[in-house]
Design a protein around this nucleic acid. Structure first.
Lengths: 335, 335
DNA sequence: CCGTGTTTTTGAATCGTTTCATGAACGGAT
DNA sequence: ATCCGTTCATGAAACGATTCAAAAACACGG
């Protein structure tokens, strides 16, 4: 069953292919009666546009790619959901790529996306090493918006949340609750978000003379949080509070603590980061630093289309949101 | 900056485009020295293949699409992760589409995927109304594998878990624990998984003379679970246990109960479905019916590629896995 | 019936690959 | 020198849509 093409439709309707194309793309330019005939033929033959041909001609696809660190992290799915409506209303399609915090996977995705001549790219880069790869795309006139990551000196638009401020918020909250020894759980430190959140935390601890211990993890997931707790509980004189680089880690930590009979928040307080839905839902509801996830996605998409629209004379914009601490049961106790 | 094409590379290397193409696709067929020259030109000009043109010529893309009910549900992300390695090792690319349990969104995705002439499709259909749409793709020689859903009389391969058996497992577990009045929380009932899980539960309740009350929800998410609990707590003589159609709903229910001071499992037991990581991680670890998520994805991909390989003389296969009940704290008490 | 202006339709060129029938170049063997 | 078999390289013909200049069709007043 050879796929039916415009040529077949044209023949069936007794018109030229140009006319069929017009019916599809600028229906107002073709006479009522002809249009009806063509549409009938289309329905009749079950014709469906061939997107590859279309793209080839257009020189560009309608796909906006979003490359995230971890699709299983609700933070990112919410970002994607924020971006989707805007992209779709602009006639685009969203494709989500998961780098899994792995530079090699990220790179493979970028190569593929470049081959696909995507319309634009929203990306949360794994670390700085991807910068030059990302700029290749920019060089190919594919606009790129960095998500959850300040552009720094890179030539891109960006949407970010001030992670250093977020780290400060979390630490200050714990210090105010009377904690004198805090653990930071997260990693790898090459991930900018991790580094920034730690930095904010470190500042506040230094100022307030609070002891800070780092438990580095190989990734930002549930498993990592649980394992870090194992390590922590082995120690004498353990911290009375932990600040986790994101909520998945925090939930893992919560489970680890609970499994070892350590009461939260009585014996160990927890602050997470992202305020995903599961955080409030945990049986010890998690205090967390909230980021405007959906808005992050929405704004990123907006910046992307602005850049596309403005074309040459576009100046990059860097939007920074402020995070907010949501205090819940996991830090409800004053020491 | 007009994108550089094979023609440019050919000119730069002093060969014909055919040769450039060969260097890329069957390097062994071109002389060592020429190949080097071409590769140098490619690197030099920063040439990148144009996938649209390639696809146009090939008549088919390398994309395998996975259409899921809810990307934010870890169950589906795990299914996707199960499928990915196999697809990628076969030189394909995975694209994930979220129907959001909405038939209209699902349909839009199918249309798009058809235009894209995808290599194959793994789909968890929202309900039966999509059957005819899905068969359009089949008619276009695009192999389709149903995921988490028996094929029934539809002409497709499928990978599923016996949801009726799962429902039975859950109900039997609760009945054995001494519960005489159970609530089923989930919906919409048009979703086959919901209907099947309910059916299994209903059977066991009928056999054992257990009272069963249904709290229908508009969707299978966190929010829905919490709201259902609100409704349930309004009643006199409330159930002593709830069986939720999936873990997101169960986690929502858990939070709702906890918020109202209802102790789990002492005053109300909970069984979820899917056994996502968060289930074990909840502060009252959730009993749940486990499905082999990753294997579901892996097998689906396998069936898809088998079908592609076998071509015409392919007979559809319908793989069914058995679910398994994982008992945890949320049902730890005998009444 | 002609000229003019407007609305429709046409058909060829183009996008960048892949494929494949031909042809060129080269090395032996006769 | 000729012939034959390999190995490589070539160039034109698809693939299926979009675009656009030019042609055709039509309307209408004079």
């Amino acid at each position: 069953m050879t796929t039916t093409s415009m040529k077949d439709v044209a023949r069936a309707a007794g018109v030229s292919v140009g006319t069929v194309s017009n019916v599809l793309n600028r229906p107002e330019a073709v006479a009522e009666e002809t249009r009806a005939r063509v549409l009938a033929a289309i329905a009749d033959l079950g014709y469906v546009r061939n997107d590859s041909a279309r793209q080839l001609r257009a020189g560009r696809s309608r796909t906006v790619a979003i490359v995230v660190l971890d699709v299983a992290n609700p933070f990112f799915t919410d970002v994607v959901r924020g971006a989707e409506p805007l992209v779709e209303s602009a006639g685009g399609v969203v494709t989500v790529c998961d780098s899994g915090e792995d530079v090699r996977r990220e790179r493979r995705h970028l190569e593929l996306l470049e081959e696909q001549r995507v319309l634009g790219l929203l990306i949360t880069p794994v670390d700085d090493s991807s910068a030059s790869w990302i700029e290749r795309l920019t060089g190919r006139d594919i606009p790129v918006v960095l998500v959850d990551r300040g552009a720094g000196r890179h030539p891109h638009c960006s949407v970010a949340v001030d992670d250093v401020a977020g780290g400060r918020l979390a630490a200050r909250h714990l210090v105010e609750r009377g904690h004198r020894k805090i653990a930071f759980i997260g990693g790898p430190s090459a991930i900018p978000q991790v580094a920034d959140r730690y930095e904010g935390c470190r500042e506040v601890c230094a100022e307030s003379g609070t002891e800070l211990e780092v438990f580095a993890t190989p990734g930002l997931n549930f498993q990592a949080g649980r394992e870090a707790i194992e390590a922590m509980l082995g120690r004498e004189d353990r911290p009375t509070a932990v600040f986790c680089a994101n909520d998945l880690v925090a939930l893992g930590a919560l489970q680890g603590l609970t499994m070892h009979g350590v009461k939260v928040p009585q014996e160990c307080a927890i602050v997470g980061y992202d305020d995903i839905d599961f955080a409030a839902a945990a049986a010890v509801p998690l205090s967390s630093v909230r980021q405007p996830r959906a808005q992050l996605g929405r704004t990123a998409a907006q910046l992307l289309f602005d850049e596309i629209a403005e074309g040459g004379d576009h100046t990059h914009r860097n939007v920074v949101f402020q995070p907010e601490l949501i205090a819940r049961a996991s830090t409800a106790l004053e020491l």
